[in-house]
């Protein structure tokens, strides 16, 4: 209004007030949006432990393959020891099956050799191997959260 004195060089006091006020409003809006997006990210997962028992070593005699269906996992046992390979295809998460030359995924045709290395199809990486440990009472425990290098086989008493 007429009483307002304009500072020709820069901003008036009122302009500063306006800038600050709208600045605060915009900052507030941004913080609300950021907080809202953060709320969508869950802090905890309602999933059971990635470690699970699979039984005693004698349940896995040499030369056998067993599929643990509820965990999507193959347990192999050969002369070098016991090892665990996932049954989840690394392309888009289908479940592979064993063939005489390795693993075959039914969905998009990924092929893996017996070690789980990719030999065909779209899969970007080989099937991971998981760590196996033994409890004090002798049961074997697979940790599907921990990968080990391919070829790591365990020998248990």
């Amino acid at each position: 209004m007429s009483s307002e004195t304009l500072d020709k060089e820069g901003v008036t006091r009122r302009d500063f007030l306006g800038l600050a006020a709208f600045g605060a409003a915009i900052f507030s809006a941004l913080s609300v949006i950021a907080g809202t997006l953060r709320i969508f990210k869950p802090n905890v997962h309602y999933e059971e432990s990635k470690k699970f028992k699979i039984g005693k070593p004698e349940n896995f005699p040499e030369g056998t393959v067993r599929k643990i269906d509820e965990r999507n996992l193959f347990i192999f046992s050969d002369s070098d020891g016991i090892y665990a390979i996932t049954a989840v295809c690394q392309h888009l998460g289908c479940i592979v099956y064993t063939t005489e030359w390795g693993f075959q995924c039914p969905c998009h045709g990924s092929k893996y050799d017996k070690e789980g290395n990719v030999i065909g199809g779209p899969a970007p990486r080989g099937l991971p191997w998981f760590e196996i440990t033994q409890n004090v009472d002798g049961t074997l425990v697979v940790n599907a959260g921990k990968e080990v290098p391919k070829g790591t086989k365990y020998i248990f008493a």
Partner: peptide
């Protein structure tokens, strides 16, 4: 309870 304890800002929300 989970909204209060483990959702980010859940108690405030």
């Amino acid at each position: 309870k989970d909204i209060i304890y483990v959702v980010f800002g859940g108690r405030l929300l």
